[in-house]
């Protein structure tokens, strides 16, 4: 269980970064840290001790135990989505930097939620 708790701590570190940082790039980095922790969580869930990687080298020996392939599939999907998120946020960050000359979110503050 220690591993899962540590994983959750990593997630919370990411949340903390997003909420307290004022630098656009730091916010993006915090988001990626959150992504990493979620991926790790999924793969941890699917691990079976003694299991092999889900690639069958010898088709005849089909009774070998492999780790759960489904969470790995999910992580594969989520990782590509994460890259899409990162590239979009970074494109916005570069635009905002050119408009304001800073990455500081307190200076980029024309709108008030």
């Amino acid at each position: 269980m220690t591993l899962y708790i540590l994983c959750f701590i990593l997630f919370l570190v990411g949340v903390y970064g997003v909420l307290t940082r004022r630098n656009l790039i730091k916010i993006v980095i915090s988001l990626t840290i959150m992504e990493f922790s979620v991926f790790l969580m999924l793969v941890l869930v699917g691990y079976i001790s003694g299991g092999l990687a889900p690639i069958v080298v010898h088709p005849e020996g089909s009774d070998i135990s492999v780790v759960d392939p489904l969470p790995q599939t999910l992580v594969l999907t989520a990782a590509v989505i994460a890259v899409a998120t990162n590239s979009m946020v970074l494109a916005l960050a570069i635009r905002l930097y050119k408009k304001y000359g800073t990455f500081d979110i307190r200076k980029i503050n024309e709108l008030k939620g």
């Binding site: 991926f39 793969v43 299991g51 990687a53 690639i55 492999v66 780790v67 790995q72 992580v75 594969l76």
Partner: peptide, 9 residues
């Protein structure tokens, strides 16, 4: 964790 696929990606 036996996920070479993910490691590569």
């Amino acid at each position: 964790l036996k996920a070479p696929e993910l490691a590569l990606v």
